[in-house]
Design a protein around this nucleic acid. Sequence first.
DNA 1: GATCAAACTTACCGCTTGGTAAGTAGAGAT
DNA 2: ATCTCTACTTACCAAGCGGTAAGTTTGATC
Lengths: 198, 198
Amino acid sequence: MAQDTRERLLDQAESLFAERGFYGVSIAAIANELGLTKQALLHHFGSKAKLYGEVLKRISDRFDADSGHPHDDQHTAADALIAYLINLSDPAAFSPIATRVLMRELLDNRGRADTAGTWYLKGFLQDLIARVQKVPNWQTASDAEALTFIYQILGAINYFRISEPTLTGIFGQDDFGALEAAFPDQLERLIRAGLNAR
Amino acid sequence: MAQDTRERLLDQAESLFAERGFYGVSIAAIANELGLTKQALLHHFGSKAKLYGEVLKRISDRFDADSGHPHDDQHTAADALIAYLINLSDPAAFSPIATRVLMRELLDNRGRADTAGTWYLKGFLQDLIARVQKVPNWQTASDAEALTFIYQILGAINYFRISEPTLTGIFGQDDFGALEAAFPDQLERLIRAGLNAR
DNA sequence: GATCAAACTTACCGCTTGGTAAGTAGAGAT
DNA sequence: ATCTCTACTTACCAAGCGGTAAGTTTGATC
């Protein structure tokens, strides 16, 4: 029940940071949401910045756990890569809340000193580069070429995922449902076409 | 010189909102940057929210001006669409600062009451849907199908553009230069492949 | 049953925030 | 010469911010 509070604070912080960003959320707001005072939060995390760091770290850990290679029962390198990327785009496999936090971090860490946040993406990206270079017609591709491709796909996925509120706002709930349903298939088609285009 | 101050305040606000987001910037910070007090800013814009609204509107206007159809001297609908999208990805044609502001708005307007902000993207997106449906093998595509494709490409573009600081941080300035150089060509290949894949 | 640490609370602090109120300085029109 | 409008300024305010200090409650350990 004690450790539980810590975890619940992290959950709440992650969700609020996702919605309003680091500056948009006060530690009092996070704590109050659980019926606590902000000093309870400070007792657990020391400072707002440290809390934010722990939120980031927890996302990173979950991310790494997820990127174990469970899809390598596919027949070809291309199929394995595609399955992996499509899985990434699945809200059930990797929470849209975390995506939002990471996207904000991407926008923020231009100015901040506390850049360490997204650097852990390095291993993840390098892993993906290697996966691309296993695909037959990409074996001679440079790292830059492979990364550019990967980054375009990640962009397609993540941009869509943070746009849900805006797209429902513009086109309505029903039409957004249609978009969401069409997304995975079209994503697969795009990745496959992109891989073949080389 | 008078109207000029307003414009200069908008410039400064746009750039600071891009870097730190709505909550991360105080109106005093914006005004001080020009050697003014915050009350000078309030005199011109009334409130912080209204200033932000005007920043958004100005970006939208610039955007619309840019999306006049100057590339329709292309031979096919596909070529015209591709030229248009590649132009969108050019920092010279559409400022990365504005991209950052819009991306933040995409993240923020889930919670905010002042949602009207990004709704103006509607016309832009509908225009793009129509452009896609002019491409021969997309003429029977539903709006949802066309929009999903477009959105994937916009994601690929915009995600890359906001990632510059992070990517240089991870891979170094030189390697990022290689990425940036490779980007347009690979983007074109991806769009073309995606269009053909239907 | 005293001791101690963990998990909190209330009280407080200095600073910053967005915003209001009430001026002032200067140019243009009458 | 005065009136008026625009573009500002200084002065002020209540509320909120992150953080420190100093308790208080509670449950386990010896």
